[in-house]
Design a protein around this nucleic acid. Structure first.
Length: 831
RNA sequence: GCGGACGUGGCGAAACCGGUAGACGCGGCGGACUUAAAAUCCGCUUCUCGAGGAGAGUGCGGGUUCGAGUCCCGCCGUCCGCACCA
């Protein structure tokens, strides 16, 4: 009597067995080779979404496969538990961020466990617990002691209603995303980490990351933004006073027709004190948003200071000094020289204010052609430039730098786009910065024996602003140095700090320090890290920096935290619209009709699941209905893992059918003797192929090979080969559909758990085919195929090809002009 | 604007080093089983014409080659990242 695989019963049963046996506990002292498999830990929003399911399924397949191939596997899970949503919930619902977060963690832990992940839950951590963030405070103080942390005044986006700092992404059209209030630029004292000290290292280090996607490495390279150029000093006419500029095009120095300062430049601010017009201009520049695309369309504007500077290579030439809205204070020196002929921004500026546009670079033959319409940025030879004339652009750059250094007015230098990492957040739900401010002693680190600095529980969110700042007692402490009354730092750390070292804490979590370096050394670097591309820059760069900083101060011995990185695609879904244009959720629709109203539905593009488009699918009911294995199988099927995966009802149905097909093979197995060579060969090829596909994370290809094998086994008659093949099949699918695999393993009467089984061995002889199919082409077009023994000689193949009836018909009596024979592949006859 | 990726059936996709394009899955069509449905099984499913068979075909236009989805040149389109970076 045929039965069905029933995930409702099986999933929970096997999950309980794994938990009880601690099957996935990682042993720090194991003699086996180690594999650290990690997926980016989730923010505990309250429910898992399909993106989590896909991410953790992929990691789980890798982890389980590594176990089967003899590795000691570390595959942990934790919670990126600090951050704004908890405070927003507190404000909206009046709940405590801690309670809200911990409830969410409990709910999501249950959901993740229902996926049957091979996780070492004994290492679970949450960044919002003092046991974690207290250790983070230690690391922060270590970096502080090493001079990698500093404090300075910096401009921030300030929301005057919510009384908080906003990230650039939270400023929409110049207004706070929550309050809608017009955002102000404010200067606040903020803590910074000196990531720029590591710019060169972080850039160079990318070169050794062979198992990272090129795309991510390139994005980081661009973000770090290394530029070589010349930094030099302009003196005001008749004065020894002046300012520095930076350029990557010193070769165009004779084409300069003006100098420009950023509106935020100290000289501009000084001049503004005596000039209300300039002060007004600067205020206008600051008012217009620095955000996004509006910059592109924004007009170049300037304010003439009336001052001039001396050209360093021609003291008789004086360049007017402008304040210009397109000069950024935080790149280079905040000042430039303008070469309108060869820089598009300078060109637009010069055009508007009628400044000279002098060509100094020209393609051959165009030496005297004026530059019109747009700046010329192409290659060429230097012209109109005294001693540079006739040089290439590259030679001229070197020559000008050499001259500047020889004469002492400038030097070749490197400028970075990367800026130091501001980590201060004026929020409650984050790691308290372990610093005490004393009027007499300045900022003083909290003594180690007073760590952790724990967040107070009794806080309210009924008024805007930082609850830590207005808490009646928390911030009032005595100075650790002089004992006089002092104040705690009330800012908390950016949550990216929390996620910059959690992978170290997973490897080792002693009570009295952040980690044991010896144990960390055994596990790190992470062998395979998996997560979304949205973290390609910030998280992955910060984690690289933090790891390097810890190595720099001697706490660990690894420089790069993640040896292998994989960025998976999103889970997408069709979108639906009602006739009136409102978005419809999938469950409101039946067969192209809105269930409630009978209206026709317009099916829109397949897009990333999002609340606004209402095209999300909650994994929970799907897991209930189909079980974990069908969901996992679907997540691995069809789409390559780096690409988006369109979710569909039909797709999950297909996965469900396949799970049952495997079960029927096991359930309906008739044991018999006798060999089936074709089955043996197919099995051997599949074992090797699936193993390779999992190693390269090509899960969709592994899935296709498994479908093929199942198809072959379904058609094969009973034999010893088939019986063994089914046992092999179960081991091959075990990383993907572990519950079914355990159930089948037990049903087959195999020993122990399939989770502890080894990956099947293969007889290499079975991988070699003794016959091959050879294609016969005439003029490159396929006309026939022949089965021949592998390795058949060229002349035999040629003879057979010319003997083919279909080939003869195509040749129509004509003698072949040429015959190309590729043994074991094809014969091409050129007529 | 700069940088990058990608473009293959109705859909998701495969195709190792230039060598039988479309494996595998979804959907669709036809059939079997059944009182019926579900489940399951079998066959067909790139397009065009057709009895067999033939022709076309990997975004478009060229090129290299006995042979191009794959290599080269030029377009077009989609997506992603950065965005006044001197």
């Amino acid at each position: 009597m045929a039965t069905r695989f029933n995930p409702r019963a099986a999933d929970a049963r096997w999950q309980a067995v794994w938990a009880e046996r601690e099957s996935f506990r990682a042993d720090d002292n194991s003699p086996k080779p180690r594999a650290y498999v990690l997926e980016m830990f989730p923010y505990p929003s309250g429910r898992i979404h399909m993106g989590h399911v896909r991410n953790y399924t992929m990691g789980d397949v890798v982890a389980r496969h590594k176990r089967m191939t003899g590795h000691e596997v570390l595959h942990p899970m934790g919670w990126d538990a600090f951050g704004m949503p908890a405070e927003n919930a507190a404000m909206e619902k009046g709940v405590h961020p801690g309670g809200w977060t911990r409830d969410n963690i409990a709910a999501m832990r249950t959901q993740l466990k229902a996926l049957g992940l091979a996780i070492d839950w004994s290492r679970e951590l949450a960044t919002c617990e003092p046991t974690y963030y207290g250790q983070e405070q230690r690391l922060f103080l270590d970096l502080y002691a090493a001079g990698l942390v500093y404090r300075r005044e910096s401009a921030v986006n300030w929301d005057p209603v919510d009384m908080t700092v906003l990230a650039n992404e939270q400023v929409i059209d110049g207004r706070g995303w929550r309050s809608g209030a017009v955002v102000e630029k404010r200067k606040l004292n903020q803590w910074f980490l000196k990531i720029t000290d590591f710019a060169e290292e972080l850039l160079e280090g990318l070169g050794a990351l062979d198992h990272w996607p090129d795309k991510v490495k390139l994005m980081q390279e661009n973000w770090i933004g290394k530029s070589r150029g010349l930094r030099f000093r302009f003196d005001f006419v008749g004065s020894s006073d002046g300012f520095e500029v930076f350029t990557t095009r010193p070769d165009t120095i004779f084409g300069a027709s003006f100098a420009a300062l950023s509106p935020d430049h100290p000289i501009a601010e000084r001049l503004a004190q005596d000039s209300p017009e300039l002060a007004a201009f600067i205020a206008e520049c600051r008012a217009t948003g620095t955000a996004a695309a509006e910059v592109e369309t924004q007009e170049k504007r300037g304010f003439p200071t009336g001052l001039s500077v001396v050209h360093p290579l021609d003291h008789d030439r004086h360049l007017p000094v402008w304040i210009a809205n397109f000069v950024l204070m935080d790149y280079g020196t905040g000042a430039i020289f303008g070469v309108p002929a060869h820089d598009q921004r300078d060109f637009e500026f010069a055009w508007k204010y009628e400044l000279p546009i002098a060509r100094v670079v020209a393609p051959a033959g165009d030496e005297d052609a004026p530059v019109t319409g747009e700046a010329y940025t192409g290659p060429g030879v230097i012209v109109n430039s005294h001693f540079l004339n006739g040089m290439s652009v590259e030679d001229a750059k070197a020559a000008v730098i050499a001259r500047a250094e020889h004469d002492g007015w400038g030097e070749g230098t490197t400028v970075w786009r990367l800026r130091d990492w501001g980590v201060s957040r004026q929020r409650y739900w984050g790691t308290p910065i372990p610093i005490i401010h004393c009027d007499a002693c300045g900022p003083v680190p909290v003594p180690r024996d007073q760590l952790p600095v724990v967040l107070p529980e009794d806080v309210s969110f009924d008024v805007p602003g930082n609850p830590l700042d207005r808490h009646p007692s928390w911030k009032h402490v005595d100075c650790p140095t002089c004992g006089t009354p002092a104040r705690r730092e009330t800012d908390t750390l950016d949550t990216f700090v929390d996620s910059s070292w959690y992978f170290l804490r997973f490897a080792s979590q002693p009570d009295d320090r952040p980690f044991d370096p010896a144990v960390v050394a055994r596990w790190l670097p992470v062998g395979q890290y998996i997560g979304g591309v949205e973290h390609a820059i910030l998280h992955l760069l910060y984690a690289r920096f933090w790891t390097r900083a810890l190595k720099h101060i001697g706490l660990i011995d690894v420089a790069e935290p993640f040896a292998g990185l994989f960025t998976q695609g999103m889970v997408t879904h069709e979108t639906y619209k009602a006739p009136d244009g409102r978005w419809l959720a999938p469950e409101e629709i039946d067969n192209g009709i809105v269930t409630a109203t009978g209206e026709a539905v317009t099916v829109g593009r397949v897009e990333k699941m999002s609340k606004s488009k209402r095209n999300t699918v909650d994994p929970a009911p799907i897991l209930d209905g189909y079980g974990a294995d069908a969901v996992r199988w679907f997540m691995l099927s069809d789409s390559p893992p780096e690409r988006d995966l369109p979710w569909s009802e039909a797709g999950i149905e297909g996965a469900w059918r396949f799970v049952q097909r495997i079960w029927r093979l096991v359930d309906g197995l008739e044991r018999a003797d006798g060999q089936d060579a074709a089955v043996d060969r197919k099995v051997a090829r599949t074992v090797v192929g699936v193993g390779e596909d999992i190693d390269s994370l090509s899960f969709n290809k592994a899935v296709a090979k498994l479908y093929e094998l199942v198809g072959v086994l379904e058609k094969a008659g009973p034999s010893r080969s088939k019986t063994e093949a089914i046992s092999v099949l179960i081991r091959l699918v075990a990383p993907m559909v572990p519950h079914l695999a355990e159930e089948a393993w037990a049903s087959l009467g195999e020993d122990g758990l399939v989770s502890d089984a080894s990956w099947p061995a293969v007889d290499p002889a079975l991988l070699v085919d003794d016959t091959v199919t050879v294609a016969l082409q005439v003029n490159g077009k396929l006309r026939d195929t022949i089965e021949v023994p592998k390795g058949l000689a060229k002349d035999s193949l040629e003879t057979m090809a010319l003997g083919s009836e279909k080939v003869r018909r195509m040749l129509d009596g004509a003698a072949p002009r040429k015959v190309i024979v590729v043994p074991d592949r094809l014969v091409n006859i050129v007529a």
